[in-house]
Design a protein around this nucleic acid. Structure first.
Lengths: 213, 213
DNA sequence: GTCTATAAGTAGATAGAC
DNA sequence: GTCTATCTACTTATAGAC
């Protein structure tokens, strides 16, 4: 009985924590680190500032939690697509690129980059964690899929880092651009997500279309 | 005589203004908008805060000046490369892409994007100015060069917006990435600028290599 | 765990002397 | 044009009651 009570307590605590992280993540992404005050987070959650400080000892810690937690789900989903060995590599590659667009344009995790850039000098450890726990694994998943396709002769043997550069570059920049020009009424006309995404993906597949060894 | 005195005065004023903008631009790019205080700018220039406010009525105005002024030089240089009709389009395109890497990775103007993203909601007019006076003309220069190559049958008729997406995406993201991970000791190993640049440019030229009409 | 109250510091911005 | 001095508002963070 005691155990179950403790479990419930811990679950409730984690619920609160997760709730705070979810809301704070949204605010950070939307307004930036410096422009997001602990008061505003507390208000949005429906707590006082002091109560918020009960859950997170400082603004840094809250931010670090927002950056590092909840990223593994997306990695898992990406890995699942990339490693489905029933499907041929080209189809999987297309699916992976589409999933990346989904993540970077529409999920908070994918819109973290400008935030990290904003605070990287103040919290180098947060930047390290974001790279090691999120970016590097994503790169690895793509490289493995690429390796597999190259080994079976279906993909051209493109330089790996250049491929990552050309895959992630447009996606991240599109996300950043939508942030920069969020107030534009004609945003979707100037930067039409679907057109850019489809064209980009087609061209990347063309590039690795096993023209050479 | 009076005229020349006034001219000298105005020149000195402009010198001060330009000096402040140069230093402030650097600080904004390096530390972000919110983390750059008017005090820190004043200190860096060697003035007091009050004197700084004599030259710029508010932080917004200083920032807007940093974003909008001094961008035209780079546009001019880019246009010069793109419109040199003596050279064939492919060589010009390569030179233009190299110039873009130079600008975005190493000049403050090219590293403005995360800044704009940080403040876009607060200063939509600044974001508009950055787009209309800097990004859109850059895009136009590239599209014109592309048009010219397509018209003469030297380039494939790639979708213009997709081409811009794939050209600027990797460049901007590389700049952002170097910002994010500025504290990494192994930054140049993880993201080797020359390799990424050369590979990217070669692949873009391959893509528009007039395979189809 | 959540609250009220408040400390300690810093931001942007201004008044007025020189 | 530059200074000293100051104001107001807001920030992160904490103490202690309930």
């Amino acid at each position: 009985m005691r155990v179950s009570t403790e479990k419930t307590k811990k679950n409730r605590q984690n619920d609160r924590r997760a709730e705070i992280i979810g809301i704070a993540k949204h605010l950070f992404v939307e307004n930036g680190f410096a422009a997001t005050s602990m008061s505003s987070v507390a208000n949005a959650v429906g707590l006082t500032k002091a109560s918020l400080y009960h859950h997170f000892p400082g603004k840094d810690d809250l931010f670090a939690a927002c950056v590092t937690e909840g990223l593994s789900d997306e990695l898992l989903a990406l890995r699942k697509i990339a490693e489905d060995s029933e499907t041929d590599p080209k189809t999987r590659m297309r699916a992976v690129l589409e999933a990346l667009y989904e993540t970077f344009i529409f999920s908070p995790a994918g819109r973290m980059s400008p935030l990290i850039a904003e605070v990287s000098r103040s919290f180098p450890t947060v930047a390290r964690a974001f790279h090691d726990d999120y970016m590097a694994p994503q790169h690895e998943i793509l490289v493995q899929l690429l390796d597999e396709g190259v080994a079976s002769g279906r993909f051209a043997d493109i330089e790996r880092k250049v491929y990552l550069h050309m895959v992630f570059g447009p996606i991240v920049t599109l996300s950043l651009t939508r942030e920069m020009f969020a107030t534009f009424e004609d945003l979707d006309q100037i930067f039409p997500v679907e057109t850019l995404r489809d064209g980009h993906i087609e061209n990347m597949l063309k590039l690795i279309g096993s023209s050479q060894t």
